[in-house]
Design a protein around this nucleic acid. Structure first.
Lengths: 195, 195
DNA sequence: GGTTTGCTTTACCGATCAGTCAAAAACGAA
DNA sequence: TTCGTTTTTGACTGATCGGTAAAGCAAACC
């Protein structure tokens, strides 16, 4: 036996960042070689083919990024929770040490219509996020923190849509300004709705 | 002289639909040949190279799709205008006769970070939309239809973000349901904000 | 220390990409 | 009909794609 000359988790993070930054198609194996410092065969040995690498990147993203954001929903107060969620996402999107935008939003846009296997995986992740939002709004409604006629499904969908939109806007040239403004805006709207 | 054997505008629409459906990279010249029924040399003769074709597609999209949506902002009443805008976008996104999602949102995500020329063109289109929203909110504020402390820039940004988000959500597996719900949701939020 | 195991390196494969060239075919004008 | 021009057609180029095969080599075990 001979042990691998690299740290798997660390390499996976570099792969994730590469896909995150450039998307699926534009991230060739050559790009991954440059990003990780490994040769192609080492990548194939360790992670399988390109589809598998992307799948592992999505998993890694979900564990390290998405889960962190969704944790804000645990708060009892809906406005605190949502404000925390939106601000945390904006912080993440505008962090200069990370790729811009969102791996899943980009992947969904790029692969949703034509790569069945990869598309399904991201669909599943997105529906999971939506489900978490739905449950949160239902709990808030049960505990009397929402109006009686509030529709949790509707509110969960608008939050979901806003989160996706911010991911796209953040990649625009004026992304930094616009993303912050959008975060303030959606917060203000929910403030008036929940008051 | 010999006249071309195809209708330029009609061909441009097919090119636009192809880029709209599959994105930039995944739309090879071969795909465009199949979509238009023309051979590659005819395409190059008529429209230049692939980048130029994409640029023309974005222009065509802006003329036929984006402009139609933005027309809703002309209404004096902000809630009527925004409800009309969001519903019209949902109708468009869910029209089975059109490609799903949004050409510009997809292009921005795919090309924003790495194709300077094409990215700039879409940046410009997006900023133009943002500017139209900003002007609309400023006019509504001047005519006393918004609160005195309302921030037009903030409101324009959140609408922009919502529109982009809906474009992404519409490409998801549950897109039809979620997009409608998101439209209802953002409408409800603005209702309570403007009331 | 020799052997074996498996990671690493290098070279290569067929397919596909955007873009080009030159011959062939079709049209308009004479 | 004939000529000239432009479109159309099909073959081709060099580059790059994802993926693979077979060496080369370093480490662990006996």
């Amino acid at each position: 036996m001979r042990s691998a000359g690299f740290d798997r988790e660390q390499t996976l993070e570099k792969i994730t960042d590469a896909f995150w930054e450039h998307g699926y198609e534009a991230t060739s194996i050559g790009v991954l070689e440059a990003a990780t410092g490994l040769k192609r065969q080492s990548l194939y040995n360790a992670f399988g083919n390109k589809d598998a690498m992307f799948g592992l990147a999505v998993d890694h993203y979900e564990r390290t990024v998405s889960a962190q954001l969704m944790r804000h929903l645990d708060n009892d107060d809906p406005l605190t929770a949502l404000t925390g969620l939106f601000n945390a996402q904006a912080d993440m999107l505008l962090d200069p040490d990370r790729p811009s935008g969102c791996l899943v939003a980009g992947g969904q846009q790029e692969l949703g219509n034509r790569r069945a296997a990869l598309g399904k995986r991201m669909d599943w992740l997105i529906l999971e996020q939506h489900q978490a939002l739905l449950v949160a709004f239902e709990l808030w409604k049960e505990s009397g923190r929402l109006w009686d006629d509030a529709d949790p499904a509707m509110l969960a969908s608008v939050v979901m849509s806003q989160i996706r939109g911010a991911s796209i806007v953040a990649r625009t040239s004026k992304g930094r300004t616009l993303t912050r403004q959008a975060t303030q805006g959606i917060t203000a709207l929910f403030e008036s709705y929940l008051r």
